[in-house]
Design a protein around this nucleic acid. Structure first.
Lengths: 348, 348
DNA sequence: AAAAGCATAGACAGCGTTGTCATAACAAGC
DNA sequence: GCTTGTTATGACAACGCTGTCTATGCTTTT
């Protein structure tokens, strides 16, 4: 079916322009512009006339024209490569909430793999006319990307980066300390054989969490059995696979610490497949406090990571840099050990 | 810290323009424009010169200028009010994938509540300069919204709408038939006391699923006990609450059918709290095949709803309407009953 | 060899806005 | 009443691009 002569109304054409409002209100376009940009020196009476005319014509400023003349796009890109929908939505919501009253809009850039984005981000940003980038893990950890953007003086902010703190703005938590706390919790419960399920080796957050795990073991003078180190990809499925391998081993660990909740949930599923009681026979701990940690049974002991808040603050940092050229250094937000039902004293 | 005199590079100013490319390539701006818009009548040699110059200057067409002169924004809005992150991400990914090679960009509009958006969508669309809207459930079911947009001839497409098929384009599945199939499955397993956990009463998908449930019972001449109807809000937490009420009742049902997976997972958690074996003592069924249905133990029997594909097709329909004024009527995609481990024969 | 046709290229206006600069209105100070 | 200063308003160019129209070559046809 085809529309005949009637035009569609999504287009910009046909909409009232600043000239129409000026004409109807008996003022000039410049005055209308002043009103819509809250510039001073407009008499209240004039302002009202303009506003009335605008309302009558259903006038909305044309963003394209505004962007063109100002040389700004008011577009910010959120780049992420993350297998966990919960995490992604938290990120988006945080950024959107911060952007809500600003004139900026958020563009999504889901990336297949962080590796093949290396060195391409600046080009993409330029092509889309972005004014700033938010790099979610692990994109903020790519050295080439950070170097490229810094070199070009292109505004960006990294969320939860783990590479050595450069001068670039970032918002995150202390992954090492958090992993250390979780490990201490397991040690305090009497666990000695603790398996660690790594996340994607390309995500440096994984390296940090593993480091924290090792530090805590070292504190208590426990020699870690490398056989208890297994690797996943941060996805639920990879957690299931890791869990199956771990529980099939001759000497089973009494606790498993997974580098994120999705994998911990996978490990939990593998435990159930094998008929293991959690936390009776094996304790399982995660990391992130994502929705999935509350959905499974028993609910997972985890690290509460303020993803939403990190994204919100990161967006604020980026905005400050774009709008006022303020350069905020690295920000660390607080994390919290959340003890729930999946961990219990070791009995062996 | 403040940047001194060096300018930030996110802005559009300072970037190469079409005039620069024309000058460097020894052509006119119109020819450069032709090259970048794949217009005919440009000699290969000229094209190459232009492209080389563009590459050398790192030229990218200014979207704002392009939008302005064309009277188009190339912006599409995705409106959703959905408590399930998995669903939302599927929706986004479907839309983004379809948009990938088009010049359009997607803007996100998470809505607090569909009700208070009623009658405001057109204004928001106009204010943001959108060319089209994708309405995810339940926004596509608001009569006032649909009426307003249709009236204004504003391009939009609804995902999984359930209201009486108007002439407006929509992509969805047959919720009634799907719920009927699931109910038959439970009946075939010998269940007779089946509780139904409703979703948000404001989401008409809920009404449809309940209707399908009732139809299947009627087919088998089973009088449904209204006490077995409980209500949630499509969230995991509301499912937990409903499950607790259901299992606290004097005569427990042998099966529970929840209107979505999140609630079914909640019911499952409530069952575990009470020490009930699933599916031994009670079968639980969900709807959606969202990630959560695979994460819990036992994995949930559910209806596989192609959310990603629905969003992708809906975007295609919208694009066709915007670009070529093609008007596609309602499209129904296939669903599938996915029998997993949470349902088993009734034994009583 | 002239005319006609087509492929190729450029000049220029205009899209809807904001910035700059000029001007008008009005109050205050002498 | 005349200057001065401040407040309020408007004329006009410019932002970077595409659409329209016109001009220039180069073939082909007569």
């Amino acid at each position: 079916m085809q529309f005949t002569d009637v035009e569609e109304r999504g287009r910009t054409r046909g909409r009232a322009t600043i000239t129409d409002v000026a004409a109807l209100s008996g003022t000039s376009i410049k005055t209308v512009s002043r009103v819509f940009n809250d510039e001073p020196f407009v008499r209240p009476a004039t302002r009202k006339r303009v506003l009335d005319a605008a309302a009558q014509l259903d006038y909305h400023p044309n963003m394209a024209a505004r962007s063109l003349v100002r040389g700004r796009s008011f577009l910010i890109g959120l780049f992420y490569e993350n297998p966990s929908p919960n995490y992604v939505v938290d990120l988006q919501t945080g950024a959107l909430d911060r952007l809500h009253d600003e004139r900026f809009q958020l563009l999504l850039f889901p990336c297949e793999s962080a590796a093949n984005m290396s060195g391409r981000l600046l080009g993409i940003a330029r092509a889309s006319g972005l004014e700033g980038l938010i790099l979610a893990p692990p994109l903020g950890d790519d050295a080439a990307t950070v170097e490229e953007l810094t070199q070009a003086r292109f505004p960006f902010v990294r969320i939860a980066p783990t590479t050595a703190p450069t001068a670039s703005p970032a918002v995150g938590i202390d992954d090492i300390a958090a992993a250390r706390e979780m490990t201490r919790h397991l040690l305090d419960l009497g666990h000695r054989r603790i398996a660690f399920v790594q996340g994607d080796p390309n995500h440096p957050s994984n390296t940090q969490r593993l480091a924290g795990f090792r530090e805590a073991l070292a504190e208590r003078r426990i020699v870690h059995d490398e056989a208890l180190l297994d690797g996943g990809l941060y996805t639920f499925e990879s957690g299931v696979a890791a869990g199956r391998r771990i529980f099939a081993a001759a000497t089973r660990p009494t606790a498993v610490f997974a580098a994120n909740d999705d994998m911990a949930a996978g490990v939990l599923l593998a435990a159930k497949e094998r008929g293991l009681d959690v936390p009776g026979q094996v304790s399982i701990a995660g990391f992130d406090d994502s929705l999935i940690s509350r959905v499974v049974w028993p609910q997972l002991t985890t690290i509460c990571q303020p993803t939403y808040e990190m994204a919100k603050q990161a967006t604020g940092v980026l905005l400050a840099r774009i709008e006022r050229r303020e350069f905020t250094a690295e920000t660390r937000l607080a994390h919290r050990l959340l003890i729930r039902a999946s961990t219990a004293p070791a009995r062996n």
